[in-house]
Design a protein around this nucleic acid. Structure first.
Lengths: 121, 121
DNA sequence: TAGTTGATCAAGCGATTGGTTGAATAATGG
DNA sequence: CCATTATTCAACCAATCGCTTGATCAACTA
């Protein structure tokens, strides 16, 4: 997978989670697979709309589907979720390490009141 | 903050990261604050467009801004990023624990070939 | 076989997105 | 004061989003 494809995958995955209905579906699926009608039940929207939401999650790689007679059970893919936390944590940790270095620098250079303003910038 | 407001916050935050330009801005900001023009430099779009991207990140609570003469330096808010990983990890872990329980159940109940199909569903 | 259930396809609609150009607002420096 | 620099506001545009209704497909069951 090249960089552009990985980018596109992140686009779709974050976009997929940027909707309360789809996040609710993910939450439900964390407790086990469910069919489209089951997933649609808590919401005041049509099953067609829920079907589309599931397609969005599937295209993003967050869920997969199997077959059971007429039903198409939806399964969560936890590995895809992990990819997202990895992306976020990567930059979160870089940011926090920068802070720690800055604090250490200011603490060793001079008095403590400079360290207080370090949190500001 | 009530549940609806928290929901809306998550909507905006995930949506904000669902764009490669904005993710690139977040990556840049993890190494320290930057002005709008600095952030716009790597991209083939206008500074107005970048300004809008930053407003999206700001509304999502992912960045804050200060003032330095005409400049409006943008700062990353790592705590907001942590909120996102917390949401994702919550359901990821529920999902994985469910798998572990299922594996243990099948392993104790009968032979190993049932455990092999447990990964399927 | 006919009817029912589960899910998708298709077309359409209002709202929103990411981008543009052009004008306006702030704050600095000569 | 005037010109420059940094940023935002405003209006617009094509594309996409979430959702609807209506029709279709697929598989079971009486």
């Amino acid at each position: 997978m090249d960089a552009a494809a990985a980018d596109d995958r992140l686009d779709r995955a974050f976009m997929a989670l940027a909707d309360p209905v789809r996040r609710s579906i993910v939450a439900r699926l964390s407790r086990g697979p469910a069919t489209v009608t089951e997933l649609a039940e808590p919401f005041d929207i049509t099953t067609q709309a829920v079907s589309k939401h599931i397609q969005v999650l599937e295209t993003a790689g967050l869920v997969t589907r199997s077959r059971d007679a007429q039903r198409r059970p939806v399964h969560l893919d936890a590995a895809a979720l992990e990819t997202l936390t990895e992306w976020i944590d990567r930059y979160r940790l870089i940011h926090e390490q920068r802070f720690r270095r800055l604090d250490a620098l200011l603490a060793s250079a001079d008095g403590g009141d400079a360290a207080a303003s370090a949190e500001q910038d």
